[in-house]
Each structure stands twice: as structure tokens, then as C-alpha cells.
Amino acid sequence: MSLTAVFINVFALSCLFFAVFKNKEKTKKSLIVAAKSLLRILPVVLIIVILIGLLLGFIPPEKISQFIGEQSGLIGIVIIAMVGAVLHIPALVSFPLAASLLKSGASISAVAAFITTLTMIGTVTLPLEIKELGKKMAFLRNGISFVIAIVIALIMGAVL
């Protein structure tokens, strides 16, 4: 088990311990919520894991790096950012997917852009956002988020 995994589990356990101490009923409820969401996300996790296996097993790294590698430049970053903006997959499983892209030749910028638009921009939730907050705020937020994602990607590519 990696150090990170140990850290996350220890953190969760200490929170759980603290919660039991504070309120037993609420902790029980929390654990039921946790079990339900685990059950709900499990098939999605398995799907992503298999897709990652296919991605790394069948698509040669040269192909991936050709589109979203170092040499693909800004255009590659913008393309993958658009893919991230349109796709609707849970953020939790987007990180293993991103890691597999990184492993198979994608640049740090491309991966950063992908994750950032994936989490920040919601095309599927856009109608609800417009309904609740108005067209102006919804379009501004999603549009500027796209620009932000590109900026984050470029800076990260330069720094890391």
C-alpha cells in the first residue's frame, strides 16, 4: 500500500472516530450514505479501469502523444480541454484516467487541462445552472472556466 493510500485511510478513520465520539446516530447514517455511494460508483470505477486497460494495451503511446503530447502544443491542450468539458464522468474516476493518459505519453499540460475542464465545466448540468442562476452567470462561469483551465494547463506545463 502506498504512503498516500495509508494517509487517506488514516485520515478517514480519524474522522470516523471523531464522529462516533460526537454523535453515534449521525455516524451510522453517514456510513449508510457511504455504503450506498460506494455501491453506486463501483460499476463506473470498473468501467473506467477496463477502459484504461484497453487504452494502455491497444493504443500505442506514440499515437496518444501525437495528439496530446509535448509536441502537440496549444492545439492539443485546447482539444483535450474541450473533450473534458463535454464528457460527463465522475471526478473521482477522472484521476486514474488522467494518470493513465500521462503514463502513455500525454503532456502534463494536457492532463491538467482535461481534469480542470472535466470538473469545473458541466455541459450536462448547464440547463440547471441557467435555470437557477440565469444565462449570464452560467455562460460567464463556464466560459471563463475554460480559459482558466487553459491558463492552469500552460503554467503547470512550464512549472512541473
Binding site: M1, S2, T4, A5, I8, N9, F11, A12, L13, C15, L16, A19, T27, S30, L31, I32, V33, A34, A35, S37, L38, I41, V45, L92
Partner: peptide
């Protein structure tokens, strides 16, 4: 290795 812990945190 981390999913159950993450879900427990979210539940809490």
C-alpha cells in the same frame, strides 16, 4: 485502496 475511505469521508 482509497475508495471506501473517500466514501466514508463524503458520507460523514
Amino acid at each position: 485502496m482509497i475508495l471506501p475511505a473517500v466514501m466514508v469521508l463524503m458520507g460523514l
